[in-house]
Design a protein around this nucleic acid. Structure first.
Lengths: 196, 196
DNA sequence: ACCTGAACACCGTTCAAGT
DNA sequence: ACCTGAACACCGTTCAAGT
């Protein structure tokens, strides 16, 4: 058999990524298999290998879409007036994580095989997110060198990631009596040189 | 056949965990399978189910051993005189991560199946590590309430985790021109209220 | 050009049968 | 009491054969 359906290849890819997203949102990485995605879109498993190099490639593309969605909410938060930005950004970040914990987890739970690197088009997405935060918060660190501002931004970024990861895997709750987002805000304020 | 070897069950468990550790150090989580561990210790796959509930249980026990090893190096670092502790702790932490990146990655890459919780004996290990850091650095935050000190400690802990994770998965290098451990030290100093 | 379905080489886990 | 080996129900991936 062939040409089982009349989906254009781009359409089919979109469908596959959407099915994968649904599976991850329901069951996390453990539930995501090539065969289940194929079944969900009504094609044979082999068909997915016309659309993606392999399962890792599919996951990386799903993660890229998640990063794009995160960028959208952070851009919105960065529109706030300068003084409100730290809080708004932290709120937006944690809202995002808490509204799709498994999708967000996939961003860091998935690792490429030993020796494989993220594709070239992926890294600019990461850099853009960082740049967005740096631009939004940079004015709050006026007396710092560019290098110092960059270091502070990256540290905030990684720190928010760490707090969220531990919170999502419940490795924080039993050890901290403070809400993750309060810790995030504390981190950002201290990194900005605030005394709060 | 039976009683293939004369290993006491505790000895056999130790051997299995050691084989698992070796596999992870060489190939990471992706290379770690029940069948390969069994082969490595010279037993049938089914035997491992006499020693562990399943593969997740084996991994959790391996991770517990990793946490114990981390505790050892942090205790040593915490012996330094008060002013040197932040730097010594950060150095010890990153030395640990960089000397066994895949073993350390396993701590966070592995997730229990949906709805399963870490065993009761695991959480005190986490709490003890946090407590160790809190005790070592608490005196550097004398004018803070107990709650504030705890929040600061947890934030540092999660932040170091975030920096290390992103560094190990090379999601930091292309975006930061600063060494991970320098970012870690920056984080800790700022969280302690330093102006550096 | 695209898709199928079977095949291959793996998995985790269970369990009757052996000692 | 402990271990084996086969079985079961899955995997990711490939590829000849079909349209």
């Amino acid at each position: 058999m062939a040409r089982r359906s009349d989906h254009a290849p781009e359409e089919l890819k979109r469908l596959a990524l959407e099915s994968a997203r649904a599976i991850v949102m329901e069951e996390g990485l453990r539930g995501l298999t090539v065969r289940r995605v194929a079944e969900r879109i009504g094609y044979a498993p082999g068909t997915l290998y016309n659309l993606f190099a392999n399962l890792d490639d599919l996951i990386v593309q799903l993660n890229a879409a998640t990063l794009d969605a995160l960028a959208v909410v952070l851009v919105e938060a960065a529109r706030a007036e300068l003084a409100a930005r730290p809080e708004r950004l932290v709120e937006a970040y944690f809202d995002f994580v808490e509204s799709r914990p498994r999708l967000w987890s996939l961003l860091f739970e998935h690792r490429l095989p030993e020796g494989e690197d993220l594709p070239d088009w992926y890294r600019p997405k990461l850099a853009a997110l960082l740049g967005l935060v740096a631009e939004a918060l940079g004015p709050l660190m006026p007396d710092q060198t560019r290098e110092a501002r960059q270091a502070a931004t990256v540290t905030m970024w990684a720190g928010l990631h760490g707090i969220s990861t531990l919170a999502v895997t419940s490795k924080l709750t039993l050890v901290a009596e403070t809400e993750p987002r309060a810790l995030g805000l504390l981190l950002v304020r201290r990194m900005l040189g605030g005394e709060s």
